[in-house]
Amino acid sequence: MQAHANSIGSNKESRGMWLGLAGVAVFSLTLPFTRIAVAELHPAFVAFGRAVVAALCSILLLWQMKAPRPTRVQVKALLITALGVVVGFPLFSSIAMRYVPASHGAVVLGVLPLATAVFGALRFGERPSLGFWLAALAGSGIVIAFALRQGGGHFHAADFALFAAVIAAAMGYAEGGRLSQSMGGQQVIAWALVLSLPVMLPASLWLAWEYGVSASPQAWLAFSYVSLFSMFIGFFFWYKGLALGGIARVGQVQLLQPFMTLLGAALIAGEVLDASNLLFAAAVIAVVAIGRRMAVRR
């Protein structure tokens, strides 16, 4: 009986890891497409406008699902989620992408798995083992070293915006991942977007009026990706994965995201990808494999 229960738990965790990886693959192209969009559109408009587009899609989804209204307790968690992933991360990352390449942002955001684990531990009582923390620290240390190497031994001023984006995303990921256990990943991101619409819509309209929205088809295509995939569809996979496999463990899949983003930046934005990137990617994958085997009490 115990063996059967362990097998079920292992299958749920494995499924959670694969769903998390699918979400990370979608998110990994966010910075390259944001970089393209903010080259012609105001960064705040890109951040808030993509939330408006995704919120309108969410209204249709919730109506089709006949989803019940969230409870008062759930609304509080949804607002925290929205503050992190609907407002904070898009705004700070869009500002940073105006000044630094997507490849630079990719490696700085490599500390996101550690930040997500910290929020999960502090907010919801997950207790990763010492080995898990060492693996997370090692992986984060690798990507930080990579960022410093790319920056000539120091951080760029835009890194502060990226660090703020990390904190916002980690908070939203942890809160939303936990809430997905009772609401489901689709409803979590959909309601978070809908609740943010009364603020995002007027802000987007004002920004469009103030700064204009004249841009090339390429910029609008990039805006469409971050609106529909980064802000909406990717969260279906991500929050479901966090709910099944745990915030701390599935969050480690994010260690692969910087290197997926580097590849995307090379293919989409024409940024340079050199051999050292592949070496750092191999090191991070090894750390993820080690951390995957470490115990996490939930």
Rank of each mutant, 00 (worst) to 15 (best):
G153K: 06
A168R: 12
A165C: 08
I142S: 04
A147K: 05
H154R: 13
S140T: 15
V143Y: 00
F163T: 05
A161P: 01
A138M: 08
A136K: 04
A157I: 08
I167P: 08
A161E: 05
F132P: 05
S140G: 14
A147W: 03
A164K: 04
A157S: 13
A165W: 05
V143D: 00
A165M: 07
A138W: 01
F132N: 11
S129M: 12
Q150H: 01
F146M: 13
A136D: 01
H154G: 10
G139S: 08
F132W: 15
A169E: 14
L162W: 07
R149V: 00
R149S: 13
F160K: 01
L130S: 13
A165Y: 06
L130K: 14
I142G: 02
F146Q: 13
A147F: 09
Q150W: 00
G141R: 03
L162S: 11
D159K: 06
F163C: 08
V166L: 09
R149I: 00
W133V: 10
A158F: 02
D159H: 07
Q150F: 00
A145I: 02
A164I: 07
W133E: 12
W133Q: 14
I142Q: 03
A135Q: 02
R149W: 10
D159A: 11
G152I: 00
F146E: 07
S129A: 14
H156R: 12
A157N: 01
S129N: 14
A157M: 09
A169P: 03
P128Q: 13
G139N: 03
F155T: 00
F146H: 10
G139D: 00
L162P: 06
P128W: 06
A161T: 10
F160E: 00
A145T: 07
F132A: 14
L148N: 03
I142D: 01
A158C: 10
F132C: 02
A147R: 10
L130H: 12
G153A: 07
A161V: 06
